[in-house]
Amino acid sequence: MTAAFDHAPARPPAGAPARFRHLIAAEWIKLRSLRSTSWVLGAGALAVIGINVNSAASNADRLARQQLPAEPPPGVQARPELLFDPLHTAFVDPAWQLLMVIAATVGGITVFGEYTSGLIRTTFTAVPDRQAVIAAKVTVVSAVMLALGTLVSGVSFGVTQVLLREYGGLSLGDPGALRAVIAAALLAPLCALVGMAVGAVVRHAAGSVVAVIALLLLVPALFQGERYRWVREIGNAMPLSAWERLVMNPERARGLGAYPLTVTDAWIVYGAWATAATAIAVLVVRRRDV
């Protein structure tokens, strides 16, 4: 009996600090255990893809009817040809704005959900290193949202372009196509990080959702004028404006008006918002009491 215990593996001491992989596993369990999260992400992905596919199918039907050799009645002017951008069909604004709201909300829940339920006290008691906890949340949420964004972006682009293959459908090798797919895929984790930052600051479910929607969707709409440069620059610095520029067909990028946003500037906006959102979440959680 004594020999058996002599060869037993040594257990770590009870007070040993949790390693980062343990924190990642814990955050993954928290996120996965919420059934509502899976339903929201799944339904949201299907909704975004459905809107884009419906747009492609509608455009294909209109283009097919346009090609029919029908002569207009006497005295009736022929209908103008349909101005059509196959790349835009895969990235319809309402669909991706919906994804932005969903991603930001889920990101915010991972932070304010623990505050509203009181679980955050248990978390910080078990792991006093708050910075490591937030870093684990950021890692898990970013990975999940990147997978979601990649799936939605890839499927939306692939299916819509197949439907439009007879009407100028694109491939990833066409100018601007790969950039648009990557930018759309990164939009989900970017908005999730913004949602986490807002959730850390507001710490209230309804307030966080309203604040993040206003920040991501309403502010860009308010700063679109071209009369004053500072107004346009603020609008250009928003994630929605950067996404719209990155998914734009290069052939349609002419005549953007005064103070246009360049592709390089748009990528910088992506990086700046992700970095700032992560820093705000870490700083606020470290400094404020639970």
Rank of each mutant, 00 (worst) to 15 (best):
D265K: 05
P80E: 02
A47Q: 07
L99H: 05
R121G: 10
R287I: 08
A214F: 02
V285R: 07
T150R: 06
S117F: 04
V140H: 10
Q224V: 03
R65N: 06
G42W: 06
V127M: 06
I49W: 02
Q77I: 05
Q77A: 15
L68C: 00
A237I: 09
T150G: 12
V92A: 12
F223W: 11
F5N: 12
N249I: 05
R179E: 06
V159Y: 15
P128D: 00
S153E: 09
A205W: 00
S58A: 09
G271R: 02
A4K: 10
R286C: 04
L98Y: 10
I102Q: 09
V247M: 01
A25M: 08
V138W: 05
V209S: 01
L178A: 06
G173F: 06
P9F: 00
T125Q: 10
V290D: 05
R130I: 06
I120A: 00
W39C: 10
V269K: 11
A8K: 11
L34F: 02
I51M: 15
A64N: 01
A57N: 12
G255I: 08
S156T: 13
S171L: 01
A206Q: 01
A205C: 06
D61Q: 07
S117R: 02
F20Y: 15
K137C: 03
A206V: 12
S241M: 07
V53E: 13
G113D: 02
A136L: 14
A10G: 09
N236L: 09
V209W: 02
A188P: 15
R229G: 10
L256N: 04
R32W: 12
S171G: 08
R254D: 08
D265P: 00
E71G: 12
L63I: 12
E166C: 14
V210M: 07
W230K: 00
L82H: 14
A184Y: 13
T278M: 15
A237C: 02
A177I: 07
P189G: 00
A70T: 15
G113E: 01
P128M: 02
D289A: 01
R165H: 08
E226V: 06
G207H: 10
L31I: 05
P260L: 05
L215A: 13
A14I: 04
L217H: 01
D93Q: 10
P189W: 00
Q161T: 13
R11Y: 13
G199T: 01
F91I: 09
L187I: 08
Q224G: 08
R245A: 08
P239W: 03
E251P: 11
F223C: 06
M196I: 11
L186V: 12
L23G: 06
E251K: 01
Q97R: 04
T37E: 03
E244G: 04
G168F: 03
A43D: 09
T125S: 13
A64S: 07
D6W: 02
N54A: 05
S171F: 04
G169N: 12
Q224Y: 03
T150H: 14
V40W: 06
D61E: 14
A136E: 13
F84K: 10
E27C: 13
G118V: 06
L119G: 03
A185T: 14
P13K: 10
S36N: 14
